Amino acid sequence: MLDTTPLLTAVERLADRLRTTPESRLRQGAAASGLALARELALRAQRLEFPGREPLEIPDAGMFAVADQLAVAGRDLALVVGTAPSGELDEAVALVEATEKQC
């Protein structure tokens, strides 16, 4: 079982950052970037957990919900990626870090 601490740490750091981001910055794209990342992490988790099943998409619940959606998607992925090839974990951490730089 892989240590998913780097993924959980990166996701929580970004989610906390989004929670404290001013509304104007969320509207300028930070919320959209966070939602896109949450959707990607959820997609990866579903593909690992339910191969062959069509993944569901995280709905847009508004810019103030993005941080929580990201946190949930990240935790879901961490639960399944712990048993996946290590490349999956590394890629997920890289995605979170890249999005954090954009936000």
Rank of each mutant, 00 (worst) to 15 (best):
L2R: 15
D3E: 09
T4Q: 02
T5N: 00
T5D: 01
L7H: 00
L7M: 06
L8R: 13
L8A: 11
T9P: 00
T9E: 06
T9F: 12
A10Y: 07
V11S: 03
V11N: 04
V11D: 06
E12F: 05
R13D: 12
L14D: 14
L14V: 10
D16N: 12
R17M: 07
L18I: 14
L18M: 01
T21R: 11
P22D: 05
P22H: 04
P22N: 12
E23V: 15
S24P: 00
L26D: 00
L26A: 02
R27W: 01
R27F: 12
R27H: 05
Q28Y: 13
Q28H: 13
G29H: 05
A31F: 06
A31M: 15
A31H: 12
A32D: 14
A32Y: 05
G34Y: 10
G34M: 09
L35P: 07
A36C: 11
L37T: 10
L37K: 09
R39P: 05
E40K: 14
E40M: 15
L41G: 09
A42P: 00
A42Y: 03
L43Y: 03
L43A: 04
L43W: 05
L43K: 08
A45D: 02
L48N: 09
L48R: 09
L48K: 10
F50Q: 04
F50R: 03
F50K: 11
P51G: 08
P51S: 10
G52Q: 03
G52Y: 08
R53G: 00
R53Y: 14
E54M: 09
E54K: 10
E54T: 14
L56F: 08
L56G: 06
L56T: 06
I58D: 03
P59Q: 11
D60N: 15
D60W: 05
D60G: 12
A61T: 04
G62E: 00
M63V: 12
F64N: 13
A65V: 05
A65D: 10
A65H: 11
A65Y: 01
D68N: 14
D68M: 14
Q69R: 07
Q69T: 12
Q69P: 02
Q69Y: 09
Q69N: 13
L70H: 10
A71S: 14
A71M: 13
V72G: 10
V72D: 03
V72A: 05
A73N: 04
D76M: 15
D76C: 13
L77E: 01
L77D: 08
L77V: 10
L77A: 14
A78N: 01
A78I: 08
L79F: 12
L79P: 00
L79H: 08
V80Q: 01
V80C: 00
V80W: 08
V80A: 02
V81R: 08
G82Y: 04
G82I: 06
G82Q: 02
G82H: 02
T83F: 09
T83P: 00
A84I: 11
A84V: 12
A84R: 04
A84W: 03
P85M: 02
S86M: 05
S86G: 13
G87C: 07
G87Q: 14
E88N: 09
L89V: 04
D90N: 15
E91C: 13
E91I: 15
E91G: 10
A92E: 08
A92W: 07
A94T: 14
A94C: 04
L95I: 02
V96R: 07
E97H: 07
E97Y: 05
E97M: 14
A98Y: 04
T99E: 12
E100G: 10
E100D: 13
K101D: 07
K101R: 14
C103I: 15
